[in-house]
Simulated assay, not measured.
Amino acid sequence: MLYDLNIAWSPSTTQSDLTQTLRFSASLGYHAVALNHLIENVPPQPKNPLPRFPSQTSQSQPAKSAASTGDSDNSNSNKETQKTDDGDRLPTVLHRATVCMSDPAGVQRIPQLAALYDLVAVRPTTEKEFSHACQEVRIEVASLISLDLTQRFPFHFRPKPCMAAVSRGLRFEVCYGQTLRGGDPRARATWIGNLMELVRATRGRGIVVSSEARRVTELRGPADVVNLLAVWGLAADKGTEGLGVNPRGVVVNEGINRRGYRGVVDIVQVAAKDEEAGDKMEGIETAESQAQKGKAAAAGGNGKKRKGGANEGRGNGSGNVLPADGAVSKRQAKKLKKLAAQEGTATPEENKSS
């Protein structure tokens, strides 16, 4: 599955332009996209103004759509896409919020945004904010560090904080649409320089490739994106992971964090009992019960062991049972001799001697 986790949205975006962009992204092969709402200052009571589509879940449960997008790649394509009223094929649409870390109060309100959006990202602009995002922002709150690579940062991307963020599960977002917009050529050169520095600092690991497209003309196919980034230092295999494996991990982790509690997720479906396995178990139990009954009948019909067993023999006339082979232990012989003296009868040994 291919992901584009950044389709730029603003209140001025019309529904027709947005539908056209989503339709074109589906034709390029993207299975899931995220509408991105860039928030400069988070209000005390934030709301989700992003438009919803008919097949999306209710606003009270936004994370279920994120978790459903993380299903196996072998799932039916009908579950991965949705259709508009006129029958056009659209990718799965997620809701995302990107918070600028220049507002300290807005950073503290990020957990409130997590309950309203499927994905949450942070965008640092200074070295202090970048270090805080790499080492202190919890992955349960935000799992993406989105960077505007067209601006000149007053610091360098050092390997230590970058690799610390990657090892914690955070991902760095690179948006190729920023360099496709017409404008200052210096901004494009700055974007290329920042990308090469970020690739060196992270060794190409933990990078998510998105478009941040504001219009249809800023979208590119997956193969074109991989080749474009390979020219500027990102290996082809890392670029492919940035379009598939890495964003899928972000979507799945965000869905689990919203639907679960301390690693315990809800039960989606209870597995049905296999009838054939149940019949086999019943047959085994019946065979075991019949075998036990046969052993009980052979032992005397009452299911109890007999004390005599195989050595059970004849009586000596006084109510005492003697072994069938006539062998008597010394202790038993003394006991029989004593009983015979009391009753006036002879023991088997005396009868043999006589």
Rank of each mutant, 00 (worst) to 15 (best):
Y3N: 03
N6H: 12
Q15A: 15
L22C: 08
F24W: 14
F24I: 10
L28H: 10
L28D: 13
Y30R: 05
L35Y: 04
L35G: 01
L38K: 05
V42D: 14
P43Q: 04
P44E: 13
P46R: 04
N48E: 09
T57G: 15
S58V: 08
S65H: 10
D71W: 03
D71R: 04
D73E: 07
S75K: 06
S75C: 08
N76D: 15
D85P: 02
A97K: 01
V99L: 03
C100A: 06
S102L: 08
A105C: 02
L119F: 04
V122H: 01
F130T: 00
H132D: 07
A133W: 01
E140C: 11
F155Q: 11
P159V: 09
C162I: 00
A165D: 03
A165P: 02
V166D: 06
S167K: 14
S167G: 13
R168H: 12
R171S: 06
C175L: 06
Y176V: 12
Y176Q: 07
G182E: 15
G183F: 05
D184S: 15
D184N: 14
T190M: 15
G193C: 08
G193K: 07
M196W: 00
A201M: 09
I207A: 08
V209L: 14
S210A: 10
R214Q: 15
R215G: 14
L219S: 02
A230V: 01
D237C: 09
K238L: 12
T240F: 13
N246A: 10
V250G: 07
V251C: 13
G255W: 04
R258I: 03
R262S: 11
D266R: 12
V268D: 13
Q269F: 07
V270F: 02
A271H: 03
A272H: 06
E275D: 14
A277Y: 08
G278T: 08
G278S: 10
G278D: 11
M281F: 03
E288H: 07
A291W: 08
G294M: 15
A296Q: 03
A297V: 10
A299I: 02
G300H: 02
N302Y: 05
N302E: 09
G303Y: 06
R306N: 05
K307A: 13
G309V: 01
G313W: 00
R314W: 13
N316E: 05
S329G: 12
R331T: 05
A333S: 13
K334H: 01
L336M: 07
K338M: 01
E343D: 00
